[in-house]
């Protein structure tokens, strides 16, 4: 009997040595202890998950691009040129915000948040072009406080976010990350950043001056 227990103990120690303990870092594909073949449980279903692969399509991708020249049936018809292109009816850049965008504190807060995520890494928290990427070799990122960019119309800033400046100036489009409404929020926040450098005391309402430590 003693031999049986010794062998059991040996097998136990051997098993633990091979399997190790929880939390160990490993690179091999995780073991499936209840494979679907033996324990059918719909764990793996014949369905498409986003960003997955499929042999059905020639390029192996599940996600499909809309066919060229089509308009999605879902969502609003994008016929508001001011909102979606930043252009007036005559094709010129608009110098105001589109009628459907209300500039208020809420929009500016949204703009600040989006700016912090998508723009600040290069353009910097102050809009001076000194983002963190500059230290790693990003070329000259323009400052918003240049006269050229102060004079730039709202529509043109919107267009820059939408389509980028590549390849001439390296900035890629951000239309995939910012919805048109978010882009207008960022434009509003960029205007607010510019104001931080050009604002005067006269523009601060008397009741808000104590907040800035002014009389």
């Amino acid at each position: 009997m003693r031999t049986v227990y010794l062998v059991t103990a040996f097998v136990l120690v051997l098993g633990i040595s091979v399997l190790g303990f929880r939390g160990k870092v490993f690179t091999h594909t995780p073991m499936d202890v209840f494979p679907d073949l033996l324990f059918p449980g719909m764990k793996v279903q014949p369905k498409f998950r986003a960003q997955g692969t499929s042999s059905f399509f020639a390029d192996g991708r599940i996600d499909r691009m809309p066919p060229a020249g089509t308009v999605p049936a879902s969502g609003p018809l994008k016929d508001d040129d001011a909102l979606y292109l930043g252009k007036a009816a005559d094709g010129s850049w608009i110098r105001v915000f589109p009628a459907s965008v209300t500039v208020n504190r809420r929009l500016l807060e949204r703009g600040r948040e989006r700016y912090g995520i998508y723009c600040a890494p290069c353009h910097g928290g102050l809009g001076d072009g000194n983002g963190v990427t500059k230290r790693y070799g990003m070329g000259a990122t323009p400052s918003y406080h240049d006269e050229r960019l102060r004079q730039m119309s709202e529509g043109q800033i919107f267009d820059t976010i939408t389509h980028g400046k590549a390849p001439a100036y390296n900035m890629n489009p951000y239309a995939d990350k910012l919805t048109p409404e978010d882009r207008w929020a960022v434009v509003a926040y960029v205007r607010a950043l510019q104001k931080t450098q050009t604002g005067t005391l006269d523009e601060v309402p008397a009741k808000n001056r104590p907040e800035l430590g002014l009389k």
Binding site: T8, G15, L19, G23, K24, V25, F26, P30, V33, F34
Partner: peptide, 25 residues
């Protein structure tokens, strides 16, 4: 004894706490 060892082993090794935590492909 074997029953106890098997129960302990399955509880410890056959859940995602062992099979998935630590996966770094």
């Amino acid at each position: 004894v074997i029953g106890v060892v098997a129960t302990a082993g399955i509880t410890y090794y056959m859940t995602p706490k062992y099979t998935r935590v630590g996966y770094a492909p």
